[in-house]
Design a binder for these strands. Structure first.
Length: 356
DNA sequence: AACTCGGGGCA
DNA sequence: TGCCCAGAGTT
C-alpha cells in the first residue's frame, strides 16, 4: 500500500500544478496570430521567428510572412531576395535560409507535411530541441517538453535549481522535470502556459510578480526566498568595438549597394560600401577615384553606432556624389524605391539612408 | 563547452 | 548601459 499512497500524493501534486497553470492560461493567455490557427505550418514559422526574438517584434513579421508565403510549397519556391526582404530587421537571418531549406526537404521527404516525430523535426535545418518540442506539442499535441528561456527560468525557480542555466546539464535536468509535469492530453497549452508565465509573471532580473503567479505554492524559490537569486546565469563575453566608415555614394540619382559574403555576420544581405577604420574625406575621394569615378561632392554624415550580440560597430559616414563610368564589379546602383521594396539591408546601415 | 549569429525594449 | 528575448549550428 505504501508505494501507492506516495504515488497518489505525487499524482495529486502534478494534477494540481497542471490544473492551476492551465486554468490561469485559459483566463490570461495572450491572443497571438499563430494561436488563432495553430496549423503546423504557422506554428513552425512562428517558432522560427520567435527564436531569441520578442513576441511583440515577431507579430507584424509573422502576419506579412504567412500572408505572402502561406504554405510549405510556396516557401520551398520563394525567391531568396523576397525571403530576405520579408525578414529584414528581424535579425539572425540564417533562420530565413533554414526555413526555405527545410521547406524543400519537407516537400521532398514528407510530401509537403511537417513530420510529427521529434527526431524527424530535429533533423530539419533550423529546428533544434526547443522548436521541435514546440511544434510537436502545439501543432500535434504530443506530450513533449519545449524548454526555452522562459521555461528555463520558471522551472529553475519552481525547483530552486541553483545551477547555471547556460549549462546544458541544467537544461537537461529541467527538461526531465517538465516531462514529469506535462499532461498527456494538453501538452501544447501546458507548454505555452509556462512560456506566458515566464513572459508576464515570472520575470527575469529579480522582478517577478509572485503575488500573481498561479503556481507560487509549488515554487521552491518562492518559499525559500530565492526568487531574486534564481536563475543563476554565467556572464557573457565582452563585446568588441569595431570602427567603420560607411559610404552613401550617389550616381545618376542612384545609390550604391553591394552584396555581403555568404558566410559570417549578415551573410548574403546587401550593404552600403564600407571600410574598416575611420577614413578621412581625402581617403574616401581616393578610393572612389581608384574605382574610376570623379567625386563632385562629399559631406560628412552623423556618426552612428550599432550593437550586435558580440560586436559593436562605431560608424562614420560620408555622403558622396560621383560622375563617370567606374570600373566596379560588385557594386549595384539602385533607386530609393528598389531599396525599400526589393533589397534586404540590415538595420546596422539604416542610419545612413535618406529615408531614416 | 565555447562561439557565432541581430535587433529591440526596458529598467 | 546591461540584460534578455518561445535558440540553433559549428568548431
Amino acid at each position: 500500500m505504501r508505494p501507492l499512497v506516495i504515488y497518489n500524493h505525487r499524482m495529486n501534486y502534478i494534477n494540481k500544478f497542471q490544473n492551476q497553470l492551465l486554468n490561469w492560461y485559459r483566463q490570461k493567455a495572450r491572443e497571438l496570430p499563430w494561436r488563432s490557427d495553430p496549423s503546423p505550418y504557422k506554428v513552425w514559422i512562428s517558432e522560427a521567428m520567435l527564436q531569441q526574438t520578442r513576441v511583440e517584434t515577431v507579430i507584424p513579421y509573422f502576419n506579412r510572412f504567412v500572408d505572402e508565403i502561406p504554405s510549405v510549397e510556396s516557401l520551398a519556391e520563394v525567391e531568396d531576395e523576397r525571403l530576405f526582404k520579408l525578414w529584414q530587421g528581424l535579425g539572425y537571418y540564417r533562420r530565413a535560409t533554414y526555413l526555405k531549406k527545410a521547406a524543400q526537404a519537407i516537400v521532398k521527404e514528407y510530401n509537403g507535411h511537417l513530420p510529427v516525430s521529434i527526431n524527424e523535426l530535429k533533423s530539419l535545418p533550423g529546428i533544434g530541441a526547443y522548436t521541435a518540442g514546440a511544434i510537436a506539442s502545439i501543432a500535434f499535441n504530443i506530450p513533449v517538453p519545449a524548454v526555452d528561456g522562459n521555461v528555463l527560468r520558471v522551472m529553475a525557480r519552481v525547483n530552486a535549481d541553483q545551477g547555471n542555466i547556460r549549462n546544458p546539464e541544467v537544461k537537461k535536468r529541467i527538461e526531465e522535470l517538465v516531462i514529469t509535469l506535462i499532461p498527456t492530453n494538453n501538452a501544447g497549452d501546458f507548454n505555452q502556459a509556462l512560456m506566458d508565465l515566464g513572459a508576464g509573471i515570472c520575470l527575469p532580473n529579480g522582478t517577478p510578480k509572485c503575488n500573481e503567479c498561479p503556481v507560487k505554492e509549488f515554487c521552491k524559490a518562492y518559499s525559500k526566498g530565492l526568487v531574486s537569486t534564481i536563475p543563476v546565469k554565467s556572464d557573457k563575453k565582452e563585446r568588441k568595438m569595431l570602427e567603420k566608415t560607411i559610404l552613401t555614394v550617389w550616381w545618376n540619382g542612384r545609390m550604391a549597394i553591394r552584396k555581403r559574403e555568404s558566410k559570417g555576420l549578415l551573410a548574403n544581405l546587401w550593404e552600403l560600401p564600407n571600410y574598416e577604420g575611420f577614413l578621412s574625406k581625402e581617403q574616401c575621394v581616393l578610393i572612389l577615384e581608384q574605382l574610376g569615378f570623379t567625386v563632385t561632392d562629399i559631406t560628412t554624415m552623423k556618426n552612428a553606432r550599432h550593437i550586435f550580440t558580440h560586436i559593436e560597430w562605431v560608424m562614420k559616414g560620408y555622403s558622396i556624389s560621383v560622375e563617370g563610368e567606374g570600373n566596379l564589379s560588385d557594386w549595384k546602383w539602385v533607386t530609393d524605391e528598389e531599396i525599400r521594396g526589393i533589397y534586404s539591408i540590415p538595420t546596422a546601415f539604416q542610419a545612413f539612408f535618406p529615408s531614416s
